[in-house]
Amino acid sequence: MIALLRRHASLMVIAAIGAAAAAALWQKRGSGAVFEALTHAWDLFLFIAPSLLAGLLLAGALRQLISPGALARWMGADSGWFGLVVATLAGALTPGGPMAAFPLVLVLAGAGADRGALVAYILSWGLNGFQRLLIYEVPLLGPEFTIMRVLVTAWMPIIAGWGARRIPIAWEPTR
């Protein structure tokens, strides 16, 4: 039940905001404006659809080809900057959404990655995961903005991982 709620929580929040916005728009500018907005949304969907399908196919294939646990032996507590760089690259190359990435942190921890590398890994996935960049950010926000933002943030997980190794919060995987 909790898992079901968790899976659909964002769907419900978005639907509620959307319904409120539609009602407000109807009130302000009539049904024509609502219909026009829906047409814009449909156009946007048609524009993203080819990338979406290709991105999901790529993610599905990569999950069959790569085993992330094999990388964890380079991400231990003594791995230094090299381990943080490996973790940052692995994070950016991890396909899929949070339902895939967060459980992978546990897999990597079990295979020997330390907390600094894990922080670098998950930050890099969140900031610059290739699947999100290619499916959403490039089509929606444009290549110029995306490339600039990636250049500005690509190195950040390495620094944050270095910092996390010095923050005195011990963390052990719970499961």
């Binding site: 978005i14 916005a21 829906l38 449909w42 969907f45």
Partner: peptide
């Protein structure tokens, strides 16, 4: 997508 894209479109109009 079915809920998120219309939501963003409504907000953009508002």
């Amino acid at each position: 997508f079915a809920v998120a894209l219309p939501m963003a479109a409504f907000l953009a109009e508002l």
